[in-house]
Amino acid sequence: MKIPAFSRPLRRGFSLVEVTLASGITALALTTLLGLIPHGLNNVKEAGNVAAETRITTHVLGSVSQARWQNVSGEDILAPAFDQQRYYFDDQGVALETDEPGPELAYVAEVRVPARDVSLPADATPQAEEDGTDPYLRRVTVKVASVANESFDFDRALPMAYRTHTTLIARTGK
């Protein structure tokens, strides 16, 4: 007599425990991924802001560094021409070439060019001024705010409402 190997027919499928475990793992993975979406979107937005601010700062500093520093009589014309000058930019950091920017305005930048205040510690060159400042270096500060308000007040705003970029520019000739 032959004994059958299986007394019941083969079942194909998963048990209730296996389905429950698989559903739990899937739910955990989906919840984690959905929780990362807002963080990723904030990172993308912040990266766009940093890229636009970099373009803005480069544009403004390029304008200031290419300008004449002195007139023919030796008077400083850099600070009067650029100090507290405002520039307006769209959401990509492209300059708006108008005094009334309108609805495209996304960034406002303001330039500060203080009086000569840069002195190098080992500056013993004969070109140094009497007060020790270097006549070929100027400090330039660019403040950039991500606002659509052309009359944004940098002096009264909280420091976290805008970013400040300070650099030195050099003059290579007279």
Rank of each mutant, 00 (worst) to 15 (best):
P135Q: 05
E130F: 04
G93L: 03
Q84I: 04
L105T: 09
A128G: 02
V118N: 07
P114C: 11
D123Y: 03
A115L: 12
D90P: 02
A122N: 12
S119G: 11
V94I: 15
Y107D: 03
P101W: 08
P121A: 15
A122S: 10
Y87E: 05
A95D: 05
D123I: 02
P114R: 06
T141K: 06
P126Y: 10
Y107H: 13
E104N: 15
A106G: 08
R86W: 04
T133G: 04
T133D: 14
P101M: 13
R112M: 13
L105E: 04
Y107A: 05
R138I: 00
E130T: 09
T141R: 10
L96T: 03
E129P: 00
D90H: 04
L120S: 08
E129H: 06
P101E: 09
G102Y: 12
A128C: 01
Y107E: 05
F89H: 01
A128M: 06
S119I: 03
D134H: 13
P135M: 02
A106Y: 01
E110T: 11
A115S: 11
T125Q: 11
E129N: 11
E130M: 05
P135K: 02
A128S: 09
Y107T: 08
L96D: 03
P103N: 10
T125F: 04
Y136S: 05
Y107R: 03
L96H: 03
D99K: 10
D90W: 03
A122Q: 11
A122P: 00
A95M: 10
R139L: 11
R139G: 00
G93F: 00
T98E: 06
Q92N: 14
A128H: 01
R139P: 01
Q127V: 12
R116K: 11
P103W: 08
Q92S: 14
R112Q: 14
P114L: 11
A128I: 04
V140R: 01
D131W: 06
T133R: 06
E130H: 05
P126V: 12
D117M: 11
R138G: 00
P103V: 12
Y107Q: 07
E97K: 12
T125S: 14
A109Q: 03
P103D: 12
Y87S: 02
R86T: 14
E100M: 08
V113M: 09
D117G: 09
